[in-house]
Design a protein around this nucleic acid. Sequence first.
DNA 1: TTGTAAGCGTTATCAA
DNA 2: TTGATAACGCTTACAA
Lengths: 330, 330
Amino acid sequence: MRDVAAEAGVALATVSRVLNDAPGVHPETAERVRRAVEATGFRRNEIARRLRSGRETATIGLLVEDLGNPFHSALAAGVEAVARRHSTSVVIASCGEDPSVEQDAVLGLCERRVDGLVVVPAGDDHTYLRDELAAGMQMVFVDRPAVGIAVDEVVSDNRRGARLAVEHLLAAGHRRIGVVTDRESIWTHGERVAGYRDAMAAAGAPARAEWVAAGNRTPAEAEEATRSLLTRTEATATALFTTNNRMTVGALGALRTSPGVALVGFDDFELADRLTPPVTVLTNDAYALGTTAAEVLFARIAGDRRQPQRTVLRGSLRVRGSGEIPPPEE
Amino acid sequence: MRDVAAEAGVALATVSRVLNDAPGVHPETAERVRRAVEATGFRRNEIARRLRSGRETATIGLLVEDLGNPFHSALAAGVEAVARRHSTSVVIASCGEDPSVEQDAVLGLCERRVDGLVVVPAGDDHTYLRDELAAGMQMVFVDRPAVGIAVDEVVSDNRRGARLAVEHLLAAGHRRIGVVTDRESIWTHGERVAGYRDAMAAAGAPARAEWVAAGNRTPAEAEEATRSLLTRTEATATALFTTNNRMTVGALGALRTSPGVALVGFDDFELADRLTPPVTVLTNDAYALGTTAAEVLFARIAGDRRQPQRTVLRGSLRVRGSGEIPPPEE
DNA sequence: TTGTAAGCGTTATCAA
DNA sequence: TTGATAACGCTTACAA
């Protein structure tokens, strides 16, 4: 910038004024400065700019589990779309379900002095954010709630959605319904399994422990778990509820060799309607979770100081075929 | 930081030393400073830190078309994974195939003084980056080449891949092969259509202009285009080559009402093997494009000053069924 | 309308 | 081992 000022024969302040379209600069001077900017190939340093003005960084942080999971990438796309409308950049970090990586990544974003944070948490203790919160950092938790701090949250109605899904299977006549799920310690999965139990209990159907195949971290593990769920010698499940898109993909693998088993999955996914049979799902709009969370965050950044809110997004059943397969005759 | 220094009764310089684990600080003093940091809830300002040291920002920029497209989110996941290994954050921007948004976003990232850029370009003129390049900004173009500037590039072997895909259809006996593609002005699609023409010409099969359904921007448009390709009254195509995963998804929609048409798609996608028939594809590893591009970029950041290189990643045919459907008897 | 100078929160250089 | 102090590149009172 000094070079520009020298080139144009003006003071730094004048260059700054021209760069910021500040009023009260002689058009001729401004023109001279602009030519100098061209000549020197000058690009202003956003970093320094923001430092001095103590202004917002026009950046928000986003933490997701894994961009390779379509649920998380759709959520990220939603956040990014809203951020772009607010002329704000998004720094994305992923933590792969590891709470310590979550903490490092989130605190790293705070040190970068982002204006706010959208967090899909992996851990179950967020008290490490208390200082940041007290210092005025804005944050919204999405998909899963925050533990130990009071912040805005945007989540799905997991328990009700799961209940609807399982009730749908019960309505088709199933009584022996298995669940394929990730670790139940993950809030969403825990809630969805609870919804399953709700539905079973309400129908007077016993929810046997051995029908809950939990702890599957990947589609491959889900496939394997499904296979053993379906090859039990007694009280074999005739229908399955899968608690997210990863579990559904895994279960579908196992079903290729065990057709005739009904399936309802949590999370819609591309091509669900092209499979044989098409897959009935309880929709869970990741893009909407992302846009909603980002909108809540920008409202906070703009000065909203109300009590933290929890926003709940409801999914609905999308009937396609796999969930309407009746149980075999006994 | 002043507060911390006051609290601990030391100078700012000492606080800085402790924060950076610099040698030559009395353990007792260090301890006192650390307690003061605790007490004041101090978090250092990464922005200011980097300003002074003129050091790298430990941030790279990534521009993609659309995070909602699994190809781009997988690519982003690859970049992010490598960046994390280098303790570097990733600022993601998406431009949705709009060259002017690309330019604004990329220049915005430069102003932020990122250490480098991974760009999936939308436009076909990148001379606007000349100044940045001259100023030492490191950048790698991925999936599509840069135009007007000499920079590192990581691309797929599109033309050869497309040729392989179409040769596979020719080998199954097809002569009337249609192409469903996005705008041919997009380099990847242009190359893939060229590969199609190569294969057809080599086989002595006429590549009729009306078999090239171009300009489809979405799966919905691709579906519509496929439908009209298959309902022509004369010289109807008996096989299809789709030039990316979006086109394939669209074409599959149309094929539900026109079974028996062979299909090979460019880009593998989840569940391709679960469809009926399973979809034969030419793989195009987006995650690998991302990791490779990021590795090239970090090598540059680390000081590699060789001539810009083009790295070409090869895909291969994954035979699953849809591409082996023979043409109907005439 | 323009220039001078202080300061943003750090780090780095020197001297003590 | 510690402390003053200049500097990073910019913005912004305030003065001219």
